[in-house]
């Protein structure tokens, strides 16, 4: 569903992503792990079509910057970017109209209820706390029912209830056959449902693992992550 091939992103002399290649399959939760500055956010932004890069990225068989691809993916940024002068409900209406969605109101209500925003429908974007903004950002990213969902540090700033709901939502997306890519530092928060992991260091993917391979070898995510990142540092 998501195919990233030889993606390189440079800022002047700084190579943020260096010839990155990986895939994320439908029905799988893939992780992008790595220390600060590894290039995870840059890669997610490249996949979302927000940055220029060399190489190729395909979403459901379409180039990531094509209109078809845009219909198939949802992006939840690390820092929620909302409109100050739109209410919670209007953000969802805006997404629905922009993506030409039909019969979206029921789904929007459900999402708001799940994330405990149903009583905040008339609140303006600027009046929301950081956590509420993050929840609304998640609702906006999910509303169009994307096939490929890109999360950048989705748990940051969320309360325990919202974290639980988000985890459930991710599992539901996986069960529905969608591809979920999560960039995160919080290994514990994704330990229950990940299927494959890509560990990044200095802009490169230094290791790729499938969960079943790792479990068969008697390893766990945290140990592998620290071993690899330490080895790379040495």
């Amino acid at each position: 569903m998501l195919v990233v091939s030889n993606v390189t992103k440079k800022y002047g002399k700084l190579v943020a992503n260096d010839n990155v290649t990986f895939t994320a399959e439908g029905g799988e939760v893939s992780l992008l792990l790595g220390p600060n500055g590894a290039g995870k956010t840059t890669l997610i932004k490249c996949i979302s079509g927000l940055l220029r890069f060399t190489g190729s990225i395909e979403i459901c068989g379409y180039g990531n910057k094509t209109l078809q691809a845009k219909r198939y993916f949802g992006y939840i940024p690390e820092v929620p970017a909302l409109y100050d002068m739109l209410t919670v409900w209007e953000h969802l209406e805006f997404i629905a109209r922009a993506y030409s969605l039909e019969n979206w109101e029921g789904r929007a209500d459900q999402l708001l209820e799940r994330f405990e925003l149903d009583d905040k429908k008339k609140k303006l974007g600027r009046e929301l706390s950081k956590g509420m903004q993050q929840k609304l950002s998640i609702c906006c990213g999910i509303l169009s029912e994307p096939k490929v969902i890109l999360f950048d540090e989705p748990m940051v700033g969320l309360d325990p209830h919202a974290i639980k709901e988000l985890k459930n939502l991710i599992v539901e997306q996986k069960q529905a056959g969608n591809a979920v890519l999560i960039s995160t530092h919080m290994l514990d928060s994704v330990a229950d449902f990940w299927d494959s992991t890509n560990i990044m260091m200095d802009g490169k993917i230094v290791d790729r693992r499938k969960r079943r391979e790792m479990e068969a070898a008697g390893e766990n995510l945290e140990d592998v992550f620290f071993r690899i990142t330490k080895r790379e540092n040495d």
């Binding site: 409900w89 209007e90 922009a98």
Partner: peptide, 24 residues
């Protein structure tokens, strides 16, 4: 925001940006 004021009301696809701006 009053109940009857909560909504963009018009626009589909790209045009929603213009209607959103007018609401703002």
């Amino acid at each position: 925001i009053k109940d009857n004021e909560n909504g963009i009301g018009k626009g589909k696809g790209a045009s929603v940006f213009a209607y959103k701006h007018m609401l703002e």
